[in-house]
Design a protein around this nucleic acid. Structure first.
Lengths: 158, 158
DNA sequence: TAAGATTGAAGAATCAATCTTG
DNA sequence: CAAGATTGATTCTTCAATCTTA
């Protein structure tokens, strides 16, 4: 009947362990992301993506170019534009032009944005620990981080 | 300036390594899933989610209840309903009632659905290997699978 | 003319409400 | 009335086209 993946034998075929690892990643992502999203929305009116962008912004020193924000959050240019619209309407970020190059626009986190991020920190930490970190030893978390980092270098730009 | 996560010290705070592991998972998922999605759409007119559902269906022996399909693919009931609409319109699955309980509906993969899955197999395998598996040793893939499996038990139902 | 960002149209997912069967 | 599935309205995201500045 062929239970999970395909069997061995054929050319260029996936082995079951590899497929299971990927399906596990897919599922783990879905479960953890959904839980964070639900908690953040309910308690802080922030989607997970919005939180991620705000966090990125703060980590970069408070300001980031739209295009780098897109890379960092794995969103399209239009996706970021609209996301920043929403965050702007909520008073969490502002857009500012850049003198050197009139084409570039910077998103800047506001004091309100930093406050909102602070308020959400306990929620974020608690949910992330319960749904993710608590299932691993410290050693395993380090190994996980190191392995996952190989797949997708984080862009550096500001 | 506080580069990546928050620092140590505060109560109930996340450590940087744990946060980095999660952000790495988020990013790894995004990159790999996007690459699979693009390749499957371009070469086989299947989104990644559609492929996942077809694969699940086949793995379960060809038929699955709508609600179990939802659990398996981490979709809402309405999400599955519409997904099965699309797959049905493409001739890849069919809906069948279940005598024992007139409320339950089964999605059944068609011969065309199996064929499409077969056609997509090389693409799926190649992309998954290049974007994911090739970055790890066999040992690491096994470890990854085992760790990720702890986070989200796969439902068994058919 | 290209780079950077925004807007219009369209697709896919969700919640809430509805319909059907048990 | 509860369980299972579908539909209406809405939201978020993307691609393609557009606008502005270099």
């Amino acid at each position: 009947l062929n239970t999970a993946g395909r069997s061995i034998g054929d050319v260029a075929q996936l082995d079951d362990v590899g497929l299971a690892a990927w399906l596990g990643l897919l599922r783990a992502h879905g479960v953890v992301a959904h839980r964070l999203d639900v908690a953040l929305q309910a308690r802080h009116r922030l989607s997970l993506v919005e939180h991620t962008v705000l966090n990125q912004l703060r980590a970069a020193g408070g300001r980031m170019r739209m295009s780098y924000l897109a890379e960092g959050a794995l969103l399209s240019p239009s996706g970021v534009s609209r996301l920043v619209d929403r965050l702007g309407a909520a008073g969490l970020v502002e857009r500012t032009a850049w003198r050197q190059d009139g084409r570039a626009i910077y998103a800047v986190i506001t004091a309100g944005g930093r406050r909102r991020l602070d308020e959400a920190e306990i929620t974020y930490g608690t949910e992330l620990r319960e749904s993710f970190l608590d299932h691993f030893s410290e050693e395993e978390v380090r190994a996980l981080r190191e392995m996952l980092a190989r797949l997708a270098p984080v862009p550096s730009g500001s």
